[in-house]
Write a protein that binds this DNA or RNA. Structure first.
Length: 500
RNA sequence: CGGGGCGUGGCGCAGUCCGGUAGCGCGCCUGCUUUGGGAGCAGGAGGUCCUCGGUUCAAAUCCGAGCGCCCCGACCA
């Protein structure tokens, strides 16, 4: 366990480190309900930044936001066989609508208020949304229908972890209907591209993308595209999914339209989502033994200004300068905070903001004011970047957005470097794969025959699953041509890893 | 649901074996001195010791039952 100052190190106990970072950076807290979490203002600030960027991306590609109900009739979820099978074990139900005092005075559900048909709390909204779509769509002229919603969903998980797996979480779920299979397919991959751009360029995660195996795909989908990031403990984190749903839901919910030809046809659907889980990805992807490390683009505070002074006169002087610097930075669109608290010395402030992952700190003391300089300190030492640098004030301010962008890019480069350093390509034997998975961990690229039996065997024996069948960009040039498990001709390359 | 751990001021813990005035560090409040990497002194506030029951003159401590949370595993974003 860590003392009040230090943190458990990643090497000593990765999951303890994770929990401590999340709580000490004030991202989240436990709630009285098992498996439910409180997202604190600092964590929610990150989520708001994520939302803003993604929302703009969705809007720019023609999507509109809407809101569908939290409660879904139980019968809806039951309509798509594979879908209900996938979620049946983790459903929260509303069965009563009233409380009364029982014999011993305690509040109990009023038996008379029992609902004829229980409601489920949405684990995802395909069913209720496609039911609505069916009412809205008549003609091919109504398509494509491109809808997104920002919502909470509930999945009653057996085992939970802050951000990574909680009973309730926040996400966006896009739902679209198209006139043709190829339109829907295009939509699913276009969204995958948007997610990819967001997770690399904003979150700096260095994700790989690809298709899920049939065993790992979304229940009810024909095909699931996914993004996977490699965490610092060399376990994979699924950071988002985009599903080609085919006509599975359209058939169940009578989502039909009249085609140009006059023929009545079922629409083609896609659904796609990313969640607050990405915040967990940021923590495990970038954090270090000091605490959180945030990419500037999603940092609620990008720059913290820490004034240094010894007496009232210096305090006035330095705070005035700090305010001016902050104002100049805000002019440039930088999110800056001046830590003017008089109760802490500079040192403790440094530690606090480092723990919270703020990308850049500006120290301003009397000596700097006199010299017309600012001390800039990055949260991390990264290749090609000076961690600490004293620059003339004007130069420092003008160059600051660029400096943040450099840092942003360096974080992504470091993530990709780490991912590739822990990716094992061209693995030919199951024995080798197993040694990697049970040893250091990481992404194992190997041939796969496509058989669910081979996949299940590996999962059973090593706990590793196929994360994705990698997209073209991520494939190994001379990938093995045989399945690493059974030796039969490989149908595709697969990336194996233990996952969250 | 199985295995492990833990419930004592806001946080981290000691005290439990062997019953006898509830403590320590950090944090918090007030004042003064401080401030370029976790400051000092002085004063102060803050606790149904998880809950219920039992034993006892006396329970944080012993006995019984229950509850909760965290971690590991099986299920999953």
């Amino acid at each position: 366990m860590a003392d009040e100052k230090g943190l458990t190190s990643r090497a000593a106990d990765f999951s303890a480190w994770y929990n401590e970072v999340v709580q000490r950076a004030e991202l989240a807290d436990y709630s009285p309900v098992r498996g439910s979490m409180i997202i604190r203002p600092y964590g929610y600030g990150i989520w708001e930044l994520m939302q803003r960027v993604l929302d703009d991306m969705f809007k720019a590609t023609g999507h509109q936001n809407a809101y569908f109900p939290l409660f879904i009739p139980l019968s809806f979820i039951a309509r798509e066989a594979e879908h209900v099978e996938g979620f049946a074990k983790e459903m929260a139900l509303v069965t009563h609508t009233r409380l009364i005092h029982g014999p011993d005075g305690a509040l109990i559900p009023d038996p008379d208020s029992k609902l004829e048909e229980p409601l489920i709390v949405r684990p995802t909204s395909e069913t209720i949304i496609y039911d609505a779509f069916a009412k809205w769509v008549q003609s091919y002229r109504d398509l494509p229908l491109l809808i997104n919603q920002w919502a909470n969903v509930v999945r009653w998980e057996m085992r939970t972890r802050l951000f990574l797996r909680t009973a309730e979480f926040l996400w966006q779920e896009g739902h679209t209907a198209h006139a043709s299979e190829s339109d829907a397919e295009q939509e699913a991959t276009r969204i995958l591209g948007i997610y990819r751009q967001f997770q690399d360029e904003w979150l700096a995660l260095g994700v790989i993308t690809g298709v899920k195996s049939p065993a790992e795909k979304f229940p009810g989908a024909d095909r699931t595209y996914a993004l996977e990031a490699l965490m610092q403990d060399n376990r994979a984190l699924q950071c988002g999914t985009s599903h080609m749903l085919g006509q599975n839901f359209a058939r169940q919910f009578e989502l039909k339209f009249q085609a140009e030809s006059g023929q009545e046809e079922y629409a083609w659907n896609t659904s796609w989502g990313v969640s607050t889980r990405m915040i967990g990805g940021l923590v495990m992807g970038h954090g270090d033994d000091t605490g959180l490390v945030l990419p500037p683009r999603v940092a609620p505070t990008q720059v913290v200004v820490v004034p240094i002074y010894r007496n009232d006169a210096e305090q006035g002087l330095v705070l005035e300068k700090a305010a001016a610097v902050a104002a100049a930075l805000r002019q440039q669109g930088v999110r800056v905070h001046v830590d003017a608290r008089d109760t802490l010395k500079p040192g403790p402030k440094y530690y606090e903001w480092e723990r919270k992952g703020v990308p850049l700190r500006i120290e301003i003391g009397p000596r700097d004011v006199a010299a017309g300089k600012l001390m800039l300190v990055l949260r991390l030492e990264l290749p090609g970047l000076a961690r600490k640098e004293a620059l003339p004030e004007a130069e420092a301010i003008d160059g600051l957005p660029g400096r943040l962008e450099q840092y942003q890019r360096a974080l992504l480069a470091a993530a990709v470097r780490r991912r590739e350093a822990n990716s094992y390509r061209g693995v030919r034997s199951y024995q080798d794969a197993r040694a990697i998975i049970e040893g250091t961990g990481g992404f194992v690229y190997a041939g796969w025959c496509g058989s669910g039996d081979c996949e299940a065997k590996v999962k059973e024996e090593t706990k590793a699953t196929i994360r994705v069948l990698p997209g073209e960009e991520f494939r190994t040039p001379d990938a093995p041509t045989n399945c690493m498990v059974c030796g039969a001709p490989a149908q595709s390359e697969a990336v194996w890893a233990r996952a969250y």
